Computed example of a mutant assay.
Amino acid sequence: MIRFGVDFGGTKIEVAALNAAGDFVARVRKPNPGNYDEALEVVAALVADAESMAGGSCARLGLGIPGSISPRTGLIRNANSTYLNGRPFGENLETRLARPVRIANDANCLALSEAADGAGAGASVVFAAIVGTGCGGGVVVDGKIINGHNGIGGEWGHAPLPWPKPEEYPGPDCWCGRKGCLETWIAGPAFARDAGFANGQAAMQAIGEGDVKASAALDRYVDRLARSLAVVCDLIDPDIIVLGGGMSNVDALYERLPAAIAPHVFSDIFETPVRKAVHGDSSGVRGAVWLWPPEV
């Protein structure tokens, strides 16, 4: 049985098909046009391309998005791709494709993928954090996404930076209308801005070349990310923390974070592993596929 999923990212839209063994049989992507109607058409075109490549039809579709669905209205909310907010994206996509669609937050999709057969395989409680263009979190317990009563389970990126230092308060303006959200401190652009570079990759290259300012920015980044993850540990005490997104490619994080988290956790021990997503940037689309169980 072939299953299909969509990773609806801020800069690109990807559709993939997996076989029963969990192997890719199709994977296609296009830039996200940043417009609601055009984005619907891009998804539809990519599904058709993936069906052709996979040699099978898409009976149902899983979709990972930035943001979540309001259980009250059924509309998208909290998406940093703000043109999705207040719109019935899932309903419109079902109409456009004439097939059922299941939607989940993209960080939840990351967590689901990594819990199924990635870095969190075999773990009961998995917390996955996206630290890329934006910042978000997802929680999976015993193989199931924890959406919560209000549909905001794991919505970590718009909590405030914990234990702020005087120079960190009240923090930068966030697109959501608040100040000092985690997204303004630990997303990739925040690190790059603090380091004085156009992007995180350039900043990390500068660190490798001995740039003192960029190295100091990484020190601050590790400290802020550690404080942010410590609160998660106090709340749900996960068996594993999995990082995805562009900043997850910074190997120094896995060496430094456990020791940086430990002093902030309300425990006499801290042994929770912090690992990189095994499936990398494929985890989002793989998690979207997993929104439909194989037997359905």
Rank of each mutant, 00 (worst) to 15 (best):
V265C: 05
G157T: 06
R224Y: 13
L229A: 07
P170V: 09
P33Q: 06
A226P: 00
N32Q: 04
A288Y: 10
A39P: 06
D194G: 05
V250P: 00
G180R: 10
A277E: 04
A129C: 14
A277M: 06
N199A: 03
M204D: 00
S248W: 03
L229I: 14
R96G: 05
V222E: 04
V285N: 05
G134N: 05
I76Y: 12
S124Y: 15
P238D: 00
L84F: 11
N108Y: 13
G210I: 11
A259D: 03
G134W: 09
P170N: 09
V139N: 08
G122S: 04
Y36E: 08
I69G: 06
H158F: 09
L182Y: 05
E91L: 08
G244L: 09
R77P: 08
R27C: 03
R286E: 08
D37P: 00
V278H: 14
G90V: 11
G208A: 15
L218E: 01
D219R: 09
A206S: 15
R96Y: 15
G120Q: 02
A129P: 01
P164M: 10
N19H: 05
K179H: 13
A104H: 08
V6N: 05
H149C: 13
A288T: 14
P293D: 03
A230G: 04
G122Q: 03
S57F: 10
L61Y: 06
A198T: 07
G177I: 12
G153T: 10
L235K: 07
E38R: 15
V131H: 01
S81F: 06
D268A: 02
Y221G: 05
V289A: 03
E168G: 02
G90S: 10
A277I: 08
A217E: 05
W292N: 12
F191S: 01
T11W: 05
W290H: 10
L61P: 15
A104V: 15
K30R: 12
D23K: 04
H158I: 08
G180N: 07
V126L: 07
V125A: 14
E183V: 11
Y254D: 14
N249T: 08
P162L: 04
S282A: 15
I152D: 00
D211E: 11
V250M: 09
A217D: 02
L225G: 07
N32H: 11
D106T: 15
G284P: 09
E94A: 12
E114Y: 07
A262C: 02
V47G: 04
A277L: 08
C233P: 12
G143L: 06
N147T: 08
R275I: 01
F4M: 08
S282H: 11
A79D: 00
I207G: 06
G9F: 00
P294H: 02
P189F: 06
D251H: 11
P189E: 02
A260T: 08
Q205W: 13
G244Q: 09
P66K: 00
Y221A: 00
S52M: 06
E167T: 15
A16Q: 01
G120W: 11
G154F: 13
L46G: 01
